[in-house]
Design a protein around this nucleic acid. Structure first.
Lengths: 209, 209, 209, 209
DNA sequence: GATGAATGAGTATTCATTCAT
DNA sequence: AATGAATGAATACTCATTCAT
């Protein structure tokens, strides 16, 4: 995989940057294929069509490249989420949109999904990145009198857990928009919406997109 | 650890059974201490005060012992849950009680918690065991007209995800009954309860216990 | 090399001890052949006709086995030196005898020589072992009014340096008793003997043996 | 280290010569810091602030640069020794002066010391260079009837060994002129001087300097 | 001539698994 | 059945060396 997210990202970039990006992209792909625990340096370099030792010209060890890959993805996801949400001001709409978009973005890039899901377990502070946006929207909803919650880190984790399940299941069983919609509804229920209002809100929001 | 869940379980049992139980208990402990990925056969046997090779007299490989350990725990949890719930007929009360009890049972046995949580990721069909009870209660709630849901495997997974987060966080940060209560409320919200009704139901149920 | 100093040393000893001794003996041989810096674990195990990983069942790393091998040799040399010197009471005679014997013992076992010489550089405190005997004899000579010296660690090091040269040269160019005799004379000169007295003493002492 | 012995040596010299000198100086410094065995090409070039590959524009391999560095130092030492000794005609005085000066020169340049000491072990023929001067003085002393020795390569090696010990110890424990004086006395003892005459000669010679 | 990225052979180390006792 | 020493495949990591720019 010499071309992937990181490689495409590159504007100019000398050979060094290109190789580095190739390694990062290879890492995503290998993790997606075999999981993070089975990740071997030799898999990465083989996938990137590079010599074994080349890895060490760019990264200290597995952890470092995983961390960088995960941050790169988190940043890319954040950017994509941002793009489509600038105009939305209604908190529930924002939350539903973000949830749906997040799930879809990740499902479109199974390479990213694997690293994101595994990172959750191994790099607790990574999710923070994405969670920032979520927290802001939840607080907005509270201010707007729409959400009946207290915004705590614990609530965020439960929120994220619902989304993770949606991604995991669809990654395994195939994309099923219905599940994404259900997840959005459940998320709203978690935030205090009644079942019927959750359903309507989700229907209205997703219809628009 | 020659004495733990499995070793105590044993009624009669010859030497073979005792050794086998010691290996299972050692596995729980080692997973709790170092995590499932870092699990080494030699750790298990050392912890069980047995020779290296003894492992293979009882189990094929790591996966097998993990599977058995996990099933053993799942069964034990189910049994404990059952015990305290026979008399309860109201579905919401059952769900809240089960959720609270499950979290507490697991937190009391951190050895179990580690295997349960890791198993979720690595042995997808294990949770089924515990999930059976849950499914029944949810269906009961639907029949009683208390839950506004469709009982799907996906919903069960999201339900379980909320509980897993509660366990993970308390395992890491220390036991906090408040978080368990919150989780129960969130679970009821997921099932269609309004925030206030969820709160009251949880308060009433947990007060009783 | 399954049979060498350490292997022969063994009286009873189970398999473990035999393997351990084989590794130590192999280490001596490999160091003698290729030098301490070029020492590879795989050379040791190959020489001992063992699998690569077996090394780590017995030693942490190269340093550990080298240290043990060196101490083993130092102890063996000390023992041999002791044996032949119990009866000698005259300090100069003792020093000459010890010097000659030490050189000869080491030259008879080129495997030992290599480790001893290299150890001098890398394990400064090892020589201490052998140096103890030397120090005692020098002090004896001072007490007997035979040596015109102050016994300092520095003097011991210079003393040892003379002997090391004698070993190194003969190891390289072949055994030459004349050089050993010269070394003995030089040693006595260092201790304050006149050239002629040194010569006579050496001649008398070495003749006897 | 772009400036050191070799770099300063350069009179005119194009870029090529400057780079080459920088590599040699870097080599000295790295050996002094980490020892000859741990010497890495990349350490040399990094220390010289040059690119990795530049090394190979100037030297075949590690051995070559070490050899050249060692010869350069040996030559420099010889020159310095020469300077201060032209006027001395009495062999014992020459020997003592040379011994003292050699030790001091080397101790003043720890970079040199490390290479010299290690070279002794790895480049047997290097010492020859410095040994030439020594041999001449010893022969002079024999001709003057001052030294009761036969000038052999072996004797030279033992002589050098005494000096090496003096350097090694002071390099490690700090400069101690007393040890240098002792070494000079021991050297004279080796050459046939009585303890008292050795002491007087050394005292007289070193006092003058 | 200098650069420095890429190379890949060489080496250390781990650990599941076997098997003779 | 238990033992535990031996095994060796798997893997990480280093560093001298090459070569395109």
């Amino acid at each position: 995989v010499r071309f992937g997210h990181f490689r495409n990202q590159l504007q100019g970039g000398g050979k060094r940057e290109r190789t580095r990006a190739a390694l990062l992209d290879a890492t995503l792909r290998v993790v997606a294929e075999k999981g993070m625990e089975a990740l071997k340096i030799s898999d990465i370099t083989a996938t990137a069509d590079l010599a074994n030792g080349t890895f060490y010209n760019h990264f200290e060890d597995k952890d470092e490249i995983l961390r960088e890959a995960a941050y790169g993805i988190a940043f890319a996801i954040s950017s994509q989420l941002d793009n489509e949400m600038e105009a939305i001001t209604d908190a529930p709409t924002r939350v539903v949109t973000a949830t749906r978009n997040f799930i879809n973005i990740v499902l479109e890039k199974p390479d990213w999904a694997a690293v994101m899901l595994d990172s959750a377990a191994h790099m607790p502070n990574l999710q923070e990145n994405v969670a920032q946006y979520l927290r802001a929207d939840l607080q907005l909803g509270v201010a707007q009198g729409k959400f009946d919650i207290e915004v705590t880190p614990f609530l965020l984790l439960q929120f994220i857990a619902l989304i993770s399940v949606a991604v995991t299941v669809q990654l395994k069983n195939g994309i099923t928009p219905q599940l994404t919609a259900e997840t959005c509804e459940n998320v709203l229920r978690l935030l205090g919406f009644s079942p019927s209002k959750a359903r309507k809100t989700v229907a209205a929001t997703l219809a628009r997109a």
